[in-house]
Amino acid sequence: MLNILWAAMILIGVVYALVTNRIDSVTSACINSSAEAVAVCIKMAGIVAFWSGIMRIGEKSGLVSALARRCYPVLKFLFPTLNPRSKAMEYISANFIANILGLGWAATPPGLLAMEELQKINPDKKSASREMCMFLIINMSSLQLITVNILAYRSQYNSANPSEIIGPGIAATLLSSIAAIVAAKVFERATFGKAVRE
């Protein structure tokens, strides 16, 4: 799926540029975007490394697992087949909490670690497991309650009341997250069958 998607994006772009006589833009996109990717990564590296270090302290002290236990009633419903005491469960809760608080870059390290843990128990290493699909669909439904960036942009452009969108934003976020859970559960049932605790 990702292979096809990626190839299609590039090929469609090239063909469209050819047709509209903007083929030079493809060359500049290759150069500029790859440089941009490295720049983003370098910018991210520091904060991701810092946060991974802080997270590790929390893991060792047991703070993260204590937090995960608090989340377990909700996570049990989302991941019925996943061991509640597993590392994967800890990382998933850390990722969700960071996302809800709007700490995007703090969410990435535990998120990737969660994928690693889930891959260890994945019976088919090339295909997404039940838990991976659920985790990522919820992750991509936007969990962030308050988008501080948007508030900043709104006041920068002289909004009379920049924060008036917080309430509606939270309502819409809840809606999309509920849709994510329902969609993931329905697809899951159709693909993997009923969840059975091992």
Binding site: M1, L2, N3, L5, W6, T108, G111, L112, M115, E116, L118, Q119, N122, D124, K125, K126, S127, A128, M132, C133, L136, I137, N139, M140, S141, S142, A172, T173, L175, S176, S177, A179, A180, A183, A184, F187, E188, T191
Partner: peptide
């Protein structure tokens, strides 16, 4: 972006219904 980074970090290429689910959630949003 999110889907690629997370799946490719563990070399999963068959993503099953992840894209469909995420698009539904975003459409509802």
């Amino acid at each position: 972006y999110t889907m690629s980074v997370y799946f490719l970090s563990v070399n999963v290429t068959k993503t099953r219904y992840t894209l469909a689910g995420a698009l539904i959630a975003n459409a509802v949003g």
